[in-house]
Design a protein around this nucleic acid. Structure first.
Length: 589
RNA sequence: GCUGGCGUAGCUCAAUUGGUAGAGCUCCUGAUUUGUAAUCAGGUGGUUGCGGGUUCGAGUCCCAUCGCCAGCUCCA
């Protein structure tokens, strides 16, 4: 649902959940901001002004182009309005009177908005001082209740989200119950800026981009090390959870995508080429290829469930302007798998996948989790009964593990219901990572079968599932979650060896060799620099462990460890150190 | 794709109203041999994203194009 639709719904639909006190205050702040802007630029015409997750905005049309230099003026004007403590007054109004009122004011967007509201809805106005707005409310008691606010940014937005419609100026602001909370929020934004994976990735030399391949990352040796370790960890899970990893082609005759339906629905997002007078497509998803492999031999019910995992590289033509760092790219791979099972096995398979996903997120330190089930949309394919059974299976698989979830009614794909997993990172930002999607369509389209116990023919259900989602995207999200401080097992350089003077180089090389022999990723800093400089370098690169080597260490065939957080450990023998580190440095089970 | 903004050395950034492109870090040389977050000196490095135009003269102004950034839309 677009923001615009939500806004319309909010204005008219009494079943929309009541606003929280904070949301109410922010929405009121949007009115105050609109009031302020109209005072400063009387030609301003208002569209919509809802609250958002961390503030509010108002879409406005006017001659003057707003810029950051205007923010202080707007804030000052808002301060006058809040100081005046104008009460918010609710007023029911007839449709005709409302149209008349807003037409008189030249508020054409409001007039249009009224037309979009169902006939039987009660229209309400809210007045505060001389300002009046079409609004369902609720609002705070008076403008003085808005204590701490700030104009954040300005951006373009379309009227009603229609890219052919008029472009409006969207003014973003935020508001909090007190100055302290606002300050905290602004600090969080600062922190997020510092952690931006595009910045950190550059600083740590993990990946880069080049205009020669837009929206397609180049991973350096260090970045690829992390990337491969993520895969290695997932592969370990696959062994325990009974997956077989397969490898499938990159480019297929378009016929495949005609069969799968991607040609019809997804063609605009595909890279397509003509070779040998045949039309080929680079795969945007693995599922059609997996169906081919499934169909390649006769399948017995005894083989099911079949769990095909695939780290195949995918290419999607994302429209210019929608790409973003590692989180939205044109080439990526997923920790993708498709489970082919009987309808009876669905519940237990969902439960298994869920268990693995939870284990995986715990490993990466994502403690907070939100789960959503999306159910049958209005237009769907397949039998109603199949859908009902599948939705019940999803719910009971989650309930069986004592997991809370919310239901997004009608938000499922046309081919089946799904479960989405969202995590919150260290800055409490929400990211969708995992997904489990049932699919009744592809098995049908590809004519997939299995031989059942009575030598009859059954149709398998296909379960699409991913835990980390795209590895590229996860890389970016995780990099921000840990602010570049990878745990030792994932760090591209796990140990940095820092000899103090040239005469310690031999011992440094010996220590490095011993660690490398145990599979530990080591770097030796042989530069002719002071120890402080070397420590600074390794710390900035977020190397988890530094080993300082001087006369004392050479003498005792020992090492003096220091962590990137500045903690220095007691001197210990090389032997003891390696043994202590071995587990921490290896991929979790 | 749409609206707006931005592209100067590998990185972070300077460059009066249009008037000879600079600094720090990185890198390379040398000196220094250092005990827990920055040793000193010297040097390399740019057709100012690419292509046109205006001008005596363009990093600066105009057009076009590519890329990036913010937001919108999209992400069956």
């Amino acid at each position: 649902m677009s923001e615009h639709e939500q806004e319309i719904r909010h204005m008219i639909d009494p079943s929309v959940p009541e606003l929280t006190p904070l949301e109410t205050m922010r929405h009121s702040a949007a009115h105050v901001m609109a009031d302020a802007i109209k005072r400063l630029w009387p030609d301003a015409k208002l569209a919509f002004g809802p609250h958002t997750e961390d503030g509010f905005y108002y879409d406005i049309a006017m001659e003057h182009r707003l810029g950051p230099e205007d923010f202080e003026r707007i804030e000052a004007e808002m301060a006058k309005i809040t100081a005046a403590k104008h009460p918010f007054v609710r007023e029911e109004i007839s449709r005709n009177a409302a149209v008349e009122l807003f037409e008189e004011e030249g508020e054409r967007f409001k007039v249009e908005a009224i037309a979009a509201i169902p006939e039987d809805a009660v229209l309400t106005l809210y007045r505060s001082g001389d300002f009046v707005d079409l609004c369902r409310g609720p609002h705070v008691e008076h403008t003085g209740k808005i204590k701490a606010f700030k104009i954040m940014s300005i951006a373009g937005a379309y009227w009603r989200g229609d890219e052919n419609g008029p472009m409006l100026q969207r003014v973003y602001g935020t508001a909090f119950p007190d100055r302290k909370a606002l300050k905290q929020y602004l600090q969080m934004l600062e922190e997020a800026k510092k952690r931006d994976h595009r910045k950190v990735g550059k600083e740590l030399g993990l990946f880069t981009f080049d205009p020669i391949a837009p929206a397609s990352p180049f991973f350096t040796g260090k970045g690829a090390t992390v990337y491969n370790l993520l895969q290695a960890y997932v592969r370990k899970l696959y062994v325990r959870y009974g997956y077989e990893e397969i490898i499938t082609p990159q480019i297929f005759d378009m016929e495949l995508f005609h069969t799968s339906g991607h040609y019809e629905h997804y063609k605009d997002n595909m890279f397509i080429c003509d070779i040998d007078e045949r039309e080929f497509g680079v795969k945007p998803m693995n599922c059609p290829g997996h169906c081919i492999l499934y169909r390649h031999s006769r399948r017995s019910y005894r083989e099911l469930p079949l769990r095909f995992a695939d780290f195949g590289r995918l290419h999607r033509y994302e429209r210019a302007g929608v790409t973003h760092g590692l989180t939205r790219v044109r080439t990526f791979c997923q920790d993708d798998a498709h489970i082919f099972c009987t309808p009876e096995q669905v519940e237990q398979e969902i439960a298994g996948v869920t268990k693995m996903i939870l284990e995986c997120y715990r490993t990466f330190g994502f403690e907070e989790l939100e789960i959503e089930i999306s159910t049958r949309p209005e237009s769907y394919l397949g039998e109603l009964e199949t859908w009902d059974r599948a939705e019940a299976a999803l719910k009971s698989a989650l309930e069986g593990q004592g997991l809370d979830y919310v239901i997004n009614e009608g938000d499922g794909a046309f081919y089946g219901p799904k479960i989405d997993f969202q995590v919150r990172d260290a800055l409490r930002r929400s990211w969708q990572l995992g997904t489990i999607q049932l699919d009744f369509q592809l098995p049908e389209r590809f004519g997939l079968e299995f031989v059942d116990q009575e030598d009859g023919r059954g149709r398998p259900v296909m379960v699409h599932r991913a835990m980390l989602g795209s590895l590229e995207r996860f890389f970016g999200v995780y990099l921000e979650h840990v602010a570049g401080k990878f745990p030792t097992w994932l760090a591209p350089v796990q140990v940095s060896i820092l000899p103090i003077a040239d005469r310690h180089h031999a011992w440094a090389e010996e220590v490095a060799a011993a660690l490398r022999a145990r599979g530990i990723r080591v770097e030796v800093d042989l530069r002719s620099e002071k120890l402080g400089q070397k420590i600074r370098g390794a710390t900035l690169q977020r190397v988890p462990i530094m080993l300082v080597l001087g006369d004392k260490e050479v003498e005792a065939r020992a090492v003096a460890p220091r962590s990137r957080d500045g903690k220095t450990g007691a001197q210990e023998t090389l032997e003891a150190f390696v043994n202590r580190l071995a587990e921490e440095a290896s991929i979790p089970a």
